[in-house]
Design a protein around this nucleic acid. Structure first.
Length: 466
DNA sequence: TGAAATGTTGGGGCG
DNA sequence: ACGCCCCAACATTTC
Protein backbone atom coordinates (compact mmCIF):
# COMPACT_ATOMS: atom_id res chain seq x y z
CA UNK A 1 0.00 0.00 0.00
CA UNK A 2 1.69 3.16 -1.27
CA UNK A 3 1.01 6.70 -0.22
CA UNK A 4 1.84 10.14 -1.55
CA UNK A 5 1.42 13.66 -0.24
CA UNK A 6 -0.78 16.22 -1.94
CA UNK A 7 0.86 19.44 -0.81
CA UNK A 8 -1.79 22.17 -1.07
CA UNK A 9 -0.59 25.76 -1.48
CA UNK A 10 -2.77 27.91 -3.68
CA UNK A 11 -4.95 25.19 -5.19
CA UNK A 12 -7.78 24.91 -2.69
CA UNK A 13 -10.08 22.82 -4.86
CA UNK A 14 -10.89 19.25 -5.79
CA UNK A 15 -12.05 19.85 -9.37
CA UNK A 16 -9.51 20.44 -12.13
CA UNK A 17 -6.65 19.86 -9.75
CA UNK A 18 -3.78 18.36 -11.69
CA UNK A 19 -1.65 17.83 -8.59
CA UNK A 20 -4.41 15.90 -6.88
CA UNK A 21 -5.22 13.89 -9.99
CA UNK A 22 -1.59 12.99 -10.55
CA UNK A 23 -1.30 11.95 -6.92
CA UNK A 24 -4.37 9.72 -7.19
CA UNK A 25 -2.99 7.98 -10.25
CA UNK A 26 0.25 7.17 -8.49
CA UNK A 27 -0.82 5.82 -5.12
CA UNK A 28 -3.43 4.03 -3.03
CA UNK A 29 -3.37 6.70 -0.37
CA UNK A 30 -3.26 10.46 -0.85
CA UNK A 31 -2.48 12.63 2.15
CA UNK A 32 -3.81 16.20 1.68
CA UNK A 33 -1.52 18.55 3.57
CA UNK A 34 -1.52 22.29 4.06
CA UNK A 35 1.51 23.78 5.80
CA UNK A 36 1.16 27.13 7.54
CA UNK A 37 4.47 28.82 6.73
CA UNK A 38 5.60 31.28 9.46
CA UNK A 39 7.73 33.13 6.93
CA UNK A 40 4.72 33.95 4.78
CA UNK A 41 2.66 34.84 7.84
CA UNK A 42 5.32 37.30 9.02
CA UNK A 43 5.92 38.91 5.62
CA UNK A 44 5.43 42.68 5.40
CA UNK A 45 3.02 41.88 2.58
CA UNK A 46 0.91 39.51 4.69
CA UNK A 47 -2.71 40.38 5.28
CA UNK A 48 -4.97 39.47 8.20
CA UNK A 49 -7.95 39.58 5.90
CA UNK A 50 -6.33 37.37 3.28
CA UNK A 51 -5.12 34.84 5.84
CA UNK A 52 -8.63 34.69 7.21
CA UNK A 53 -9.99 34.11 3.70
CA UNK A 54 -7.40 31.38 3.24
CA UNK A 55 -8.37 29.71 6.51
CA UNK A 56 -12.03 29.89 5.55
CA UNK A 57 -11.06 28.24 2.29
CA UNK A 58 -9.19 25.52 4.15
CA UNK A 59 -12.22 24.89 6.31
CA UNK A 60 -14.36 24.58 3.21
CA UNK A 61 -11.83 22.27 1.56
CA UNK A 62 -11.70 20.12 4.68
CA UNK A 63 -15.48 19.73 4.57
CA UNK A 64 -15.34 18.76 0.90
CA UNK A 65 -12.58 16.27 1.66
CA UNK A 66 -14.66 14.73 4.42
CA UNK A 67 -17.51 14.27 1.95
CA UNK A 68 -15.00 12.17 0.03
CA UNK A 69 -14.07 10.19 3.17
CA UNK A 70 -10.77 12.03 3.36
CA UNK A 71 -9.66 15.01 5.44
CA UNK A 72 -7.20 17.86 5.48
CA UNK A 73 -4.01 17.64 7.54
CA UNK A 74 -2.82 21.06 8.67
CA UNK A 75 0.62 21.56 10.14
CA UNK A 76 2.75 24.56 10.88
CA UNK A 77 6.44 25.19 10.35
CA UNK A 78 9.19 25.29 7.81
CA UNK A 79 7.70 23.45 4.81
CA UNK A 80 10.77 21.30 4.19
CA UNK A 81 11.00 20.21 7.83
CA UNK A 82 7.28 19.45 7.99
CA UNK A 83 7.41 17.45 4.78
CA UNK A 84 10.48 15.53 5.95
CA UNK A 85 8.80 14.49 9.18
CA UNK A 86 5.64 13.56 7.26
CA UNK A 87 7.78 11.42 5.01
CA UNK A 88 9.16 9.57 8.03
CA UNK A 89 5.76 9.10 9.64
CA UNK A 90 3.86 7.95 6.54
CA UNK A 91 6.39 6.25 4.28
CA UNK A 92 5.08 8.46 1.51
CA UNK A 93 7.28 8.21 -1.50
CA UNK A 94 6.41 11.35 -3.44
CA UNK A 95 4.91 14.81 -3.09
CA UNK A 96 2.58 16.37 -5.66
CA UNK A 97 1.93 20.10 -5.74
CA UNK A 98 0.72 22.78 -8.11
CA UNK A 99 3.67 24.84 -9.34
CA UNK A 100 3.80 28.41 -8.09
CA UNK A 101 6.19 30.62 -10.04
CA UNK A 102 6.42 33.54 -7.61
CA UNK A 103 9.95 34.13 -6.31
CA UNK A 104 9.51 32.90 -2.74
CA UNK A 105 7.61 29.80 -3.86
CA UNK A 106 10.27 28.92 -6.42
CA UNK A 107 13.05 29.13 -3.84
CA UNK A 108 11.02 27.13 -1.35
CA UNK A 109 10.16 24.43 -3.86
CA UNK A 110 13.73 24.16 -5.11
CA UNK A 111 14.82 23.63 -1.52
CA UNK A 112 12.26 20.88 -1.07
CA UNK A 113 13.03 19.28 -4.40
CA UNK A 114 16.67 19.09 -3.42
CA UNK A 115 15.84 16.78 -0.49
CA UNK A 116 12.55 15.13 -1.35
CA UNK A 117 10.84 13.82 -4.50
CA UNK A 118 8.50 16.64 -5.48
CA UNK A 119 6.45 16.67 -8.65
CA UNK A 120 5.05 20.03 -9.73
CA UNK A 121 2.02 20.27 -11.99
CA UNK A 122 0.63 23.29 -13.85
CA UNK A 123 -2.52 25.11 -12.80
CA UNK A 124 -1.90 28.62 -11.50
CA UNK A 125 -1.81 29.86 -15.09
CA UNK A 126 -3.28 28.33 -18.25
CA UNK A 127 -0.02 28.55 -20.16
CA UNK A 128 3.48 28.11 -18.74
CA UNK A 129 5.12 31.43 -17.92
CA UNK A 130 8.50 29.79 -18.49
CA UNK A 131 7.71 28.55 -21.99
CA UNK A 132 5.68 31.44 -23.37
CA UNK A 133 8.42 33.48 -25.06
CA UNK A 134 9.03 35.47 -28.20
CA UNK A 135 10.30 33.49 -31.19
CA UNK A 136 13.86 34.56 -30.35
CA UNK A 137 13.54 33.02 -26.89
CA UNK A 138 13.39 36.22 -24.87
CA UNK A 139 10.39 36.99 -22.66
CA UNK A 140 7.61 39.30 -23.78
CA UNK A 141 7.58 42.73 -22.18
CA UNK A 142 4.63 44.18 -24.09
CA UNK A 143 1.12 42.96 -23.43
CA UNK A 144 -0.38 42.97 -26.92
CA UNK A 145 2.11 40.63 -28.59
CA UNK A 146 2.06 38.48 -25.45
CA UNK A 147 -1.70 38.18 -25.68
CA UNK A 148 -1.58 37.43 -29.41
CA UNK A 149 0.84 34.59 -28.81
CA UNK A 150 -1.20 33.40 -25.81
CA UNK A 151 -4.39 33.27 -27.87
CA UNK A 152 -2.68 31.48 -30.74
CA UNK A 153 -1.58 28.56 -28.55
CA UNK A 154 -3.56 25.31 -28.59
CA UNK A 155 -6.40 25.29 -26.10
CA UNK A 156 -5.59 23.73 -22.74
CA UNK A 157 -7.26 20.44 -21.84
CA UNK A 158 -10.79 20.57 -20.51
CA UNK A 159 -11.09 20.91 -16.73
CA UNK A 160 -10.84 17.65 -14.82
CA UNK A 161 -13.84 16.61 -12.75
CA UNK A 162 -13.41 16.30 -9.01
CA UNK A 163 -12.46 12.77 -8.01
CA UNK A 164 -15.38 10.57 -7.00
CA UNK A 165 -13.65 9.20 -3.98
CA UNK A 166 -10.47 9.74 -2.02
CA UNK A 167 -8.65 7.19 0.11
CA UNK A 168 -8.64 8.21 3.78
CA UNK A 169 -5.27 9.42 5.04
CA UNK A 170 -3.63 7.72 8.02
CA UNK A 171 -3.97 9.35 11.45
CA UNK A 172 -1.44 12.16 11.70
CA UNK A 173 -0.79 15.18 13.90
CA UNK A 174 -3.29 17.77 12.73
CA UNK A 175 -3.70 21.34 13.90
CA UNK A 176 -7.03 21.71 12.18
CA UNK A 177 -7.99 25.09 10.75
CA UNK A 178 -6.95 27.82 13.16
CA UNK A 179 -9.74 30.09 14.38
CA UNK A 180 -9.60 33.73 13.40
CA UNK A 181 -12.19 35.57 15.47
CA UNK A 182 -11.23 39.01 14.17
CA UNK A 183 -12.18 38.16 10.61
CA UNK A 184 -14.91 40.08 8.93
CA UNK A 185 -15.45 41.16 5.35
CA UNK A 186 -19.16 41.62 5.85
CA UNK A 187 -19.75 38.28 4.22
CA UNK A 188 -19.00 39.75 0.81
CA UNK A 189 -16.61 37.00 -0.17
CA UNK A 190 -17.36 33.56 1.17
CA UNK A 191 -14.36 31.30 0.68
CA UNK A 192 -14.36 27.93 -0.99
CA UNK A 193 -14.62 26.02 -4.22
CA UNK A 194 -18.39 25.79 -4.12
CA UNK A 195 -18.78 29.54 -3.78
CA UNK A 196 -16.28 30.05 -6.61
CA UNK A 197 -18.31 27.80 -8.92
CA UNK A 198 -21.56 29.58 -8.01
CA UNK A 199 -19.99 32.92 -8.80
CA UNK A 200 -18.54 31.68 -12.06
CA UNK A 201 -21.96 30.43 -13.16
CA UNK A 202 -23.65 33.66 -12.17
CA UNK A 203 -21.02 35.58 -14.10
CA UNK A 204 -21.13 33.54 -17.30
CA UNK A 205 -24.95 33.30 -17.25
CA UNK A 206 -25.74 36.94 -16.55
CA UNK A 207 -23.05 39.49 -15.78
CA UNK A 208 -20.87 38.71 -18.78
CA UNK A 209 -23.64 39.79 -21.18
CA UNK A 210 -23.05 43.38 -20.16
CA UNK A 211 -19.35 43.06 -19.35
CA UNK A 212 -18.19 45.26 -22.24
CA UNK A 213 -20.46 48.09 -21.10
CA UNK A 214 -20.40 47.67 -17.34
CA UNK A 215 -17.00 46.35 -16.32
CA UNK A 216 -15.67 49.84 -15.58
CA UNK A 217 -18.74 50.95 -13.67
CA UNK A 218 -17.83 51.09 -10.00
CA UNK A 219 -21.47 51.47 -8.98
CA UNK A 220 -22.60 48.23 -10.64
CA UNK A 221 -21.81 44.58 -10.23
CA UNK A 222 -20.26 44.50 -13.65
CA UNK A 223 -17.17 42.36 -13.03
CA UNK A 224 -16.73 38.68 -12.27
CA UNK A 225 -15.60 39.20 -8.67
CA UNK A 226 -13.56 36.03 -9.05
CA UNK A 227 -10.11 37.39 -8.22
CA UNK A 228 -9.93 36.09 -4.61
CA UNK A 229 -10.94 32.64 -5.84
CA UNK A 230 -8.35 32.59 -8.60
CA UNK A 231 -5.79 33.80 -6.08
CA UNK A 232 -6.20 30.70 -3.93
CA UNK A 233 -7.10 28.31 -6.69
CA UNK A 234 -10.64 27.81 -5.44
CA UNK A 235 -11.13 28.18 -9.19
CA UNK A 236 -8.44 27.16 -11.67
CA UNK A 237 -7.28 29.42 -14.47
CA UNK A 238 -8.24 26.68 -16.89
CA UNK A 239 -11.79 26.52 -15.54
CA UNK A 240 -12.04 30.27 -16.01
CA UNK A 241 -10.64 30.00 -19.54
CA UNK A 242 -13.15 27.37 -20.61
CA UNK A 243 -15.99 29.32 -19.06
CA UNK A 244 -14.95 32.35 -21.11
CA UNK A 245 -14.57 30.17 -24.18
CA UNK A 246 -18.02 28.63 -23.78
CA UNK A 247 -19.65 31.99 -23.14
CA UNK A 248 -17.93 33.20 -26.29
CA UNK A 249 -19.07 30.24 -28.37
CA UNK A 250 -22.67 30.84 -27.33
CA UNK A 251 -22.35 34.51 -28.06
CA UNK A 252 -21.01 34.69 -31.62
CA UNK A 253 -22.63 37.63 -33.43
CA UNK A 254 -24.00 39.08 -30.21
CA UNK A 255 -22.61 41.82 -27.97
CA UNK A 256 -21.61 39.13 -25.51
CA UNK A 257 -18.97 37.95 -27.93
CA UNK A 258 -16.90 41.05 -27.33
CA UNK A 259 -17.56 40.72 -23.61
CA UNK A 260 -16.15 37.20 -23.42
CA UNK A 261 -13.08 38.33 -25.33
CA UNK A 262 -12.59 41.26 -22.96
CA UNK A 263 -12.86 39.04 -19.94
CA UNK A 264 -10.39 36.60 -21.46
CA UNK A 265 -8.08 39.58 -21.86
CA UNK A 266 -8.21 40.16 -18.13
CA UNK A 267 -7.21 36.54 -17.54
CA UNK A 268 -4.32 37.07 -19.97
CA UNK A 269 -3.21 40.20 -18.09
CA UNK A 270 -2.99 37.99 -15.00
CA UNK A 271 -0.74 35.57 -16.84
CA UNK A 272 1.28 38.41 -18.38
CA UNK A 273 2.17 39.80 -14.96
CA UNK A 274 2.94 36.31 -13.63
CA UNK A 275 5.38 35.98 -16.51
CA UNK A 276 6.89 39.43 -15.90
CA UNK A 277 7.57 38.62 -12.25
CA UNK A 278 9.00 35.26 -13.25
CA UNK A 279 11.40 36.68 -15.82
CA UNK A 280 12.16 39.98 -14.07
CA UNK A 281 11.95 39.24 -10.33
CA UNK A 282 13.65 42.55 -9.48
CA UNK A 283 10.38 44.37 -10.27
CA UNK A 284 9.44 43.55 -6.69
CA UNK A 285 12.04 46.03 -5.54
CA UNK A 286 12.40 48.62 -8.23
CA UNK A 287 11.00 50.05 -11.44
CA UNK A 288 11.09 47.83 -14.51
CA UNK A 289 12.22 50.85 -16.50
CA UNK A 290 15.69 51.88 -15.32
CA UNK A 291 15.27 55.56 -16.22
CA UNK A 292 12.41 55.86 -13.73
CA UNK A 293 14.19 54.45 -10.70
CA UNK A 294 15.04 57.79 -9.12
CA UNK A 295 11.81 59.70 -9.18
CA UNK A 296 11.63 62.35 -6.44
CA UNK A 297 9.01 60.59 -4.35
CA UNK A 298 7.70 62.68 -1.49
CA UNK A 299 7.97 61.53 2.09
CA UNK A 300 4.44 62.31 3.25
CA UNK A 301 3.13 60.17 6.11
CA UNK A 302 0.20 62.54 6.63
CA UNK A 303 -0.88 62.29 3.01
CA UNK A 304 -0.37 58.54 3.04
CA UNK A 305 -2.59 58.15 6.11
CA UNK A 306 -5.29 60.26 4.51
CA UNK A 307 -5.14 58.03 1.44
CA UNK A 308 -5.20 54.85 3.51
CA UNK A 309 -8.15 55.98 5.61
CA UNK A 310 -10.17 57.40 2.75
CA UNK A 311 -10.16 61.07 3.69
CA UNK A 312 -8.37 62.72 0.79
CA UNK A 313 -11.33 64.95 -0.05
CA UNK A 314 -11.71 63.24 -3.44
CA UNK A 315 -14.88 61.15 -3.09
CA UNK A 316 -13.98 58.41 -5.56
CA UNK A 317 -10.56 57.88 -4.03
CA UNK A 318 -12.03 57.81 -0.55
CA UNK A 319 -14.78 55.39 -1.56
CA UNK A 320 -12.18 53.11 -3.14
CA UNK A 321 -10.00 52.96 -0.04
CA UNK A 322 -12.93 52.47 2.29
CA UNK A 323 -14.20 49.65 0.11
CA UNK A 324 -10.78 48.01 0.34
CA UNK A 325 -10.61 48.45 4.10
CA UNK A 326 -14.13 47.14 4.59
CA UNK A 327 -14.27 44.08 2.33
CA UNK A 328 -10.68 43.38 1.25
CA UNK A 329 -11.49 43.98 -2.39
CA UNK A 330 -11.65 46.96 -4.71
CA UNK A 331 -13.14 47.42 -8.16
CA UNK A 332 -10.38 47.42 -10.78
CA UNK A 333 -11.26 50.89 -12.05
CA UNK A 334 -11.09 52.11 -8.45
CA UNK A 335 -7.66 50.48 -8.07
CA UNK A 336 -6.36 52.48 -11.01
CA UNK A 337 -7.88 55.71 -9.73
CA UNK A 338 -6.61 55.34 -6.17
CA UNK A 339 -3.18 54.19 -7.35
CA UNK A 340 -2.96 57.12 -9.74
CA UNK A 341 -3.89 59.46 -6.92
CA UNK A 342 -1.22 58.12 -4.59
CA UNK A 343 1.58 58.08 -7.13
CA UNK A 344 0.72 61.06 -9.30
CA UNK A 345 -1.28 63.46 -7.14
CA UNK A 346 0.53 62.81 -3.87
CA UNK A 347 3.78 61.78 -5.60
CA UNK A 348 4.21 58.98 -3.05
CA UNK A 349 6.31 55.96 -4.03
CA UNK A 350 4.19 53.27 -5.70
CA UNK A 351 5.85 50.67 -3.44
CA UNK A 352 4.07 52.13 -0.40
CA UNK A 353 0.73 51.68 -2.14
CA UNK A 354 1.70 48.25 -3.41
CA UNK A 355 2.46 47.11 0.13
CA UNK A 356 -0.76 48.54 1.51
CA UNK A 357 -2.82 46.79 -1.17
CA UNK A 358 -1.04 43.52 -0.40
CA UNK A 359 -1.85 43.97 3.26
CA UNK A 360 -5.57 44.27 2.55
CA UNK A 361 -6.59 42.58 -0.69
CA UNK A 362 -8.11 39.11 -0.48
CA UNK A 363 -6.84 38.60 -4.02
CA UNK A 364 -3.43 40.11 -3.18
CA UNK A 365 -0.96 38.41 -5.46
CA UNK A 366 2.64 39.62 -5.78
CA UNK A 367 2.70 39.45 -9.58
CA UNK A 368 -0.65 41.02 -10.42
CA UNK A 369 -0.44 43.65 -7.70
CA UNK A 370 3.07 44.70 -8.62
CA UNK A 371 2.14 44.77 -12.30
CA UNK A 372 -0.86 46.95 -11.62
CA UNK A 373 1.07 49.43 -9.53
CA UNK A 374 3.95 49.71 -11.94
CA UNK A 375 1.47 50.12 -14.77
CA UNK A 376 -0.22 53.04 -13.03
CA UNK A 377 3.04 54.61 -11.93
CA UNK A 378 4.28 54.35 -15.50
CA UNK A 379 7.42 52.56 -14.33
CA UNK A 380 6.49 49.10 -15.57
CA UNK A 381 6.46 46.99 -18.70
CA UNK A 382 4.10 48.34 -21.27
CA UNK A 383 2.95 50.82 -18.66
CA UNK A 384 0.70 53.79 -18.92
CA UNK A 385 2.70 56.74 -20.34
CA UNK A 386 3.86 59.02 -17.55
CA UNK A 387 1.66 61.85 -18.71
CA UNK A 388 -1.49 59.80 -18.28
CA UNK A 389 -2.73 61.33 -15.05
CA UNK A 390 -6.20 60.38 -13.89
CA UNK A 391 -8.46 63.25 -12.86
CA UNK A 392 -10.40 61.78 -9.92
CA UNK A 393 -13.38 64.06 -10.52
CA UNK A 394 -13.72 63.14 -14.19
CA UNK A 395 -13.16 59.45 -13.46
CA UNK A 396 -15.94 59.65 -10.89
CA UNK A 397 -18.34 61.30 -13.32
CA UNK A 398 -17.55 58.75 -16.00
CA UNK A 399 -17.54 55.52 -14.02
CA UNK A 400 -19.84 56.38 -11.12
CA UNK A 401 -22.24 58.67 -12.95
CA UNK A 402 -24.98 58.59 -10.32
CA UNK A 403 -22.58 58.70 -7.38
CA UNK A 404 -23.97 55.46 -5.97
CA UNK A 405 -20.51 54.01 -5.39
CA UNK A 406 -19.42 57.13 -3.51
CA UNK A 407 -22.58 57.23 -1.39
CA UNK A 408 -22.27 53.56 -0.53
CA UNK A 409 -18.76 53.85 0.87
CA UNK A 410 -18.67 57.48 1.98
CA UNK A 411 -21.95 57.81 3.84
CA UNK A 412 -21.30 61.37 4.96
CA UNK A 413 -21.87 62.33 1.31
CA UNK A 414 -25.20 60.53 1.08
CA UNK A 415 -27.18 63.79 1.12
CA UNK A 416 -25.08 65.47 -1.57
CA UNK A 417 -26.88 65.87 -4.92
CA UNK A 418 -25.48 64.32 -8.09
CA UNK A 419 -24.19 67.62 -9.40
CA UNK A 420 -21.71 67.84 -6.53
CA UNK A 421 -21.15 64.23 -5.56
CA UNK A 422 -17.68 64.08 -7.10
CA UNK A 423 -16.67 67.57 -6.01
CA UNK A 424 -18.46 68.36 -2.75
CA UNK A 425 -15.99 71.17 -2.06
CA UNK A 426 -17.87 73.18 -4.68
CA UNK A 427 -21.17 73.09 -2.80
CA UNK A 428 -21.95 76.73 -1.96
CA UNK A 429 -21.05 77.42 1.65
CA UNK A 430 -24.60 78.35 2.62
CA UNK A 431 -25.97 75.06 1.27
CA UNK A 432 -23.52 72.70 2.96
CA UNK A 433 -25.20 72.47 6.37
CA UNK A 434 -28.60 71.85 4.77
CA UNK A 435 -27.12 68.94 2.77
CA UNK A 436 -25.50 67.49 5.87
CA UNK A 437 -22.04 67.94 4.44
CA UNK A 438 -20.05 70.85 5.80
CA UNK A 439 -16.65 70.80 4.11
CA UNK A 440 -13.89 70.67 6.68
CA UNK A 441 -16.24 69.22 9.30
CA UNK A 442 -18.30 66.38 7.84
CA UNK A 443 -16.02 65.77 4.86
CA UNK A 444 -12.50 67.07 4.19
CA UNK A 445 -11.51 69.59 1.59
CA UNK A 446 -9.19 68.08 -1.05
CA UNK A 447 -5.79 67.48 0.55
CA UNK A 448 -4.08 68.43 -2.68
CA UNK A 449 -5.11 70.53 -5.67
CA UNK A 450 -5.30 68.22 -8.66
CA UNK A 451 -4.28 70.80 -11.26
CA UNK A 452 -1.19 71.73 -9.25
CA UNK A 453 -0.37 68.07 -8.57
CA UNK A 454 -0.67 67.25 -12.25
CA UNK A 455 1.86 69.91 -13.18
CA UNK A 456 4.13 68.77 -10.37
CA UNK A 457 4.17 65.12 -11.38
CA UNK A 458 4.56 65.88 -15.07
CA UNK A 459 7.60 68.03 -14.29
CA UNK A 460 9.09 65.32 -12.07
CA UNK A 461 8.66 62.56 -14.65
CA UNK A 462 9.77 64.73 -17.56
CA UNK A 463 12.99 65.48 -15.76
CA UNK A 464 13.75 61.77 -15.24
CA UNK A 465 12.39 60.39 -18.47
CA UNK A 466 13.89 61.38 -21.73
C1' DT B 1 -7.22 51.05 -19.30
C1' DG B 2 -6.47 60.14 -20.00
C1' DA B 3 -6.77 64.89 -19.74
C1' DA B 4 -5.81 69.48 -21.01
C1' DA B 5 -4.50 72.68 -24.41
C1' DT B 6 -4.91 74.15 -28.83
C1' DG B 7 -6.94 74.25 -33.41
C1' DT B 8 -10.94 74.10 -36.62
C1' DT B 9 -15.55 74.53 -38.08
C1' DG B 10 -20.03 76.20 -38.54
C1' DG B 11 -24.34 78.18 -36.88
C1' DG B 12 -26.56 82.14 -35.09
C1' DG B 13 -26.87 86.87 -33.28
C1' DC B 14 -26.05 91.29 -34.49
C1' DG B 15 -24.85 95.76 -36.62
C1' DA C 1 -26.87 90.48 -47.83
C1' DC C 2 -22.63 90.68 -45.55
C1' DG C 3 -18.93 90.61 -42.27
C1' DC C 4 -17.85 90.09 -37.71
C1' DC C 5 -17.87 88.00 -33.32
C1' DC C 6 -18.98 84.48 -30.10
C1' DC C 7 -18.85 80.01 -28.78
C1' DA C 8 -20.38 75.31 -28.88
C1' DA C 9 -18.88 71.11 -30.84
C1' DC C 10 -15.59 68.45 -32.54
C1' DA C 11 -10.72 67.25 -33.93
C1' DT C 12 -5.89 67.33 -33.17
C1' DT C 13 -1.91 67.92 -30.54
C1' DT C 14 0.60 67.93 -26.41
C1' DC C 15 1.87 66.57 -21.89
Amino acid sequence: MSSVIWWIRRDLRLSDNQALSAALEQADTVIPVFIIDPILMASPYASQQRVAFLFEGLRSLDIDLHKHRSGLIIQKGDPLEVLQSLFRETQAYRIFAEADTSPYARRRDEGVMHKLPLTLTPGVTVHSVEKLRKPDGTPYTVFTPFSRMWRSLPFPGKPLPAPEWLPPPPPLPNLGVPALPSYSNNGTFLAGENEAQCRLTKFTDFIINRYAEDRNRMDLEGTSGLSPYLRFGMLSARQAFWAAREADALAVDTPSHQSAQLWLNELIWREFYAAILYHFPYVRYTAFRPELRNLPWRDDPVGFSAWVEGRTGYPVVDAAMRQLNAIGWMHNRARMISASFLTKDLLIDWRQGERYFMQHLLDGDPAANNGGWQWTAGTGTDAAPYFRVFNPVLQGKKFDPLGAYVRRWVPELSGVPNAFIHMPVEIPADKQAHLGCVIGKDYPAPIVDHAMARQRVLAAYRKQGR
